[in-house]
Design a protein around this nucleic acid. Structure first.
Lengths: 231, 231
DNA sequence: GAGTGGTCTAGACCACCAA
DNA sequence: TGGTGGTCTAGACCACTCC
C-alpha cells in the first residue's frame, strides 16, 4: 500500500525483473495475482502492464500456460511517417511542392499486383517535394477513381495529392514496404544525383473496406534515413 | 444491452464512425461517457478503445479538451524484425551461417558517434547469413566489452553473435534506422552482386541502463524488402 | 472552478488450454 | 476439468487544462 504507481511504472518494474536476470529467456513468470501482491497493486494493473510487454514481443502469455519470457524476442520497430510538409518544416527547411504530371491511365502490372487485378483506369500524379528548393522526395502516386472519383476535379498543381487525400479520404487499413533501388536516369535527374545512386524507397497503399484508395511510391533523396522510435 | 462486445469491437466501431464520415478530421467526438451509452458498454471499455486509437495516431485526446479526429494523421508503421534464422526458415529456405572475422579493435568514428565517445576497445564480429547457400545478409557487429565482457570467451564460428546475445544479454532499449547504400566492392563480392547495386541497410543498437551493448549494421541482399504490419 | 480524460480497484464472469 | 489469462463493470479518485 501507499506506493505511487500507474500501470506504466508496474510495466517497467516487471521489465526490470526480466532485464536484471531474475527471469531469463524461457523462464515462467509468477501468476498475475502474485505479481500484483508483490508490487502492491490490483490484478488489472498487472494485466495492463503485461499486455503492453506482450505487444512489444518481450513476453508470451497463454491461458492456463502462464506468462513466460520469450526465447526469440521479436524486435518491433515503430516508425512514424509524418506528412511530408510537416517533416520538412520540422527539420527547419522551407517546404516546396512541384507538380510534374497528372494523367488518367491504365496502371502497369506492378501496380495491379499490389492493388488487385480488376481496376478501372486510374489517376496518376507525379510530384516533387522540396526542402529549401532542393529535391527531397519524388512521389509517384496512383489514385483509384472508383473509391476517389472526385480526384478528377482537383487541381494538383498547388495542392499535393497527399494533403487532399488526408483531408477527404479516410482509410481503414495501410500497407507499407521499404526497399532500396538505384536511382536510374529519370529519377537521378529529378533528384539531382547520379543514376547509380542507391535510394531508399517507401511504398504505401491505403484501403477502405478492402478496396484500394491510393498507392504511392516515394523515392527519397540520397542520405535519407528512417529512424524508429525507441521501444 | 445484450451486445457481444470486447474493447476491440468497440474500437472498430468508433473507427467506423470516423471513416464513415460522421466525424471528419478536426471534429470533436462525444465524451467517453456518451459513446459508452450509445454503444451499450462501460466507460472503461471506451477508454481502452480510445487509448488504442490514440496510439495509432488517428485521434487526439486532451483532458477537459475532449477527443478529436487528428488533422494530420501520422502513419505509424509497425515492423517486426525477427531473428534471421527464423526469418530464413519461415520462408522455406535452409539457414546457413558463416563467420568472416572476429577482432578486438578500436571502433571508428562512425561507430563512436552512435554509441558515445568514451568507449573501451570493442569486439567486432563480421558474418554472413545464408539462405540455401546463397548470401542473404551481411552482418557487421560491434560488441561493447564493458557491458558484455564475456563475449571474448565465445566461439562465434558456429554460434551467431545475435543468438548468443539474445540468450545472454537482455536490453531495455533499442534504436533502429533504415537506409539505402551502394554495395561497393567488398560487400558486392560477399553478397554476389555488382558494386553499384542498391542495398537496404538496417542498423540496430541495443542498450542496457543507457549503456550500449551492441551495434549491428546489416546489409541485406538485393531485392530485400521490409514489410509493415497493416494497421 | 469545472469538465474531461487517465487510472486504480475489487469482483465477476468468460475463454482457452495444459495437466 | 481446473487454473490461468482476458475482459467487463461500476465506482472512485486524480490530473490536466480549458473556460
Amino acid at each position: 500500500m501507499s506506493e505511487r504507481s500507474n500501470w506504466r511504472e508496474i510495466r517497467d518494474e516487471i521489465h526490470r525483473m526480466i532485464v536484471s536476470g531474475r527471469f531469463r529467456p524461457g523462464d515462467k513468470l509468477p501468476r498475475d495475482v502474485d505479481i500484483a501482491a508483490e508490487l502492491h497493486c490490483g490484478r488489472s494493473t498487472v494485466q495492463r502492464a503485461m499486455q503492453d510487454l506482450a505487444e512489444r514481443g518481450l513476453i508470451e502469455r497463454r491461458r492456463k500456460g502462464g506468462t513466460s519470457v520469450r526465447l526469440d524476442p521479436v524486435t518491433r520497430a515503430k516508425l512514424e511517417i509524418p506528412d511530408t510538409r510537416k517533416e520538412v518544416e520540422s527539420r527547419g527547411f522551407r517546404y516546396g511542392y512541384q507538380l510534374i504530371d497528372v494523367e488518367r491511365k491504365d496502371p502497369p502490372e506492378t501496380v495491379k499486383s499490389r492493388l488487385g487485378r480488376d481496376l478501372a483506369p486510374m489517376l496518376r500524379v507525379q510530384a516533387l517535394h522540396l526542402a529549401n528548393a532542393n529535391a527531397y522526395m519524388l512521389e509517384d502516386r496512383w489514385i483509384n477513381l472508383e473509391t476517389a472519383p472526385d480526384a478528377l476535379e482537383v487541381d494538383f498543381s498547388h495542392t499535393s495529392a497527399n494533403e487532399w487525400l488526408i483531408a477527404n479520404k479516410s482509410y481503414d487499413a495501410v500497407d507499407m514496404r521499404f526497399y532500396a533501388e538505384n536511382a536510374g536516369r529519370w529519377r537521378g535527374e529529378l533528384l539531382n544525383t547520379p543514376p547509380e545512386m542507391a535510394l531508399l524507397v517507401l511504398e504505401r497503399t491505403t484501403w477502405i473496406e478492402k478496396r484500394p484508395i491510393t498507392l504511392v511510391k516515394v523515392s527519397t533523396a540520397p542520405g535519407y534515413q528512417l529512424i524508429s522510435h525507441s521501444g
